[in-house]
Amino acid sequence: MTLMLLVLALFGACIGSFTNVVVWRLPRQESPIWPGSHCPSCGHPVRWHDNVPVLGWLLLRGRCRDCTAAISARYPIVEAFSGFLWLSALIPALRSSNTLLITLLMGLVLVSLLLPLVLIDLDHLWLPEPICRAGVISGVLATALLAWGGGSERPESVLLNHLIASAAGLLVMEGLSALAERLLGQPALGLGDAKLAAMAGAWLGLGGLGISMALAVFSGAAVGTLGRWTGRLGPRQPFPFGPFIAFGIWMTWLMGAPWWWQRWLALMGGT
């Protein structure tokens, strides 16, 4: 088990390193594959031993080996956080003993798609359609794999539920966006949020979609209220909603929609 944890954390940090590249290049319409990693200040290629996640930054003391330009601490933070997220993917996998490996692999795919979406939305208020589309497709494939591989009694019903949820997430969010724009006179939700909601439906189904969006709304409202109360956000200043949807998706994937529903009933005084 210790070896598995170490391998997950290591590979997760490596994916976090690639995520940093995607987050930097995709908004600039650059290929995340070619050319290889290089210093944005001097353009010199990063040596392989300087590209080791977290450790490379620490050994370089946060500066380029060639031009000594500062390297943001965000790089190792993202790498370490990605490693932590990969470790957290074990939570639902260990609950699904008969589909442990499938559930783990699918969770790793999901979180590796969510992380760049969150970071790009925080930086640019933009959720790239290619990643959202890949998220929807992979969610449908993951659902099919888990439904048939897990021995569900009616796997076709499970798949249909997730397809309907994906379409519902897209249409409902687009409808809310149009309604909010009509009422407020300015966009309140981006179309990227609708596509991320479609991704939520593809991965989580109708019940999971409802739970994840509820978590997104509550967490987004709490952060937005705090931001306006402290003056960090202006009265009509937009802020990204994608990170909160991603948070809701991942929390629902980790604990399962029934677990969250039970917590909600307990909070409301039910049984």
Rank of each mutant, 00 (worst) to 15 (best):
V109S: 13
M106W: 08
L117I: 14
G107C: 12
C132D: 11
L108I: 13
I120H: 00
D123S: 08
P128N: 05
G139L: 01
P130W: 06
V111T: 15
H124D: 11
P116I: 06
A134P: 01
G139C: 07
C132F: 03
L105A: 15
L114Y: 09
L114I: 08
V118H: 05
H124S: 09
I131P: 00
W126H: 12
V118I: 13
I120S: 01
L113M: 14
H124M: 09
L125S: 13
H124T: 10
L127D: 00
M106Q: 13
L113S: 05
V109Q: 15
L127W: 01
E129A: 10
P128Q: 02
L105P: 02
L108S: 13
S138H: 01
P128H: 04
H124Q: 10
M106H: 10
P128K: 01
C132Y: 03
V118M: 12
L125T: 02
L114H: 09
L110G: 10
S112M: 14
P116R: 05
A134G: 15
V111E: 12
V111K: 14
L114A: 11
G135F: 09
V111S: 14
L113K: 07
S138L: 12
L125G: 00
G139H: 04
G139S: 05
C132H: 05
L119E: 03
S112G: 14
L125C: 11
D123L: 03
R133Y: 14
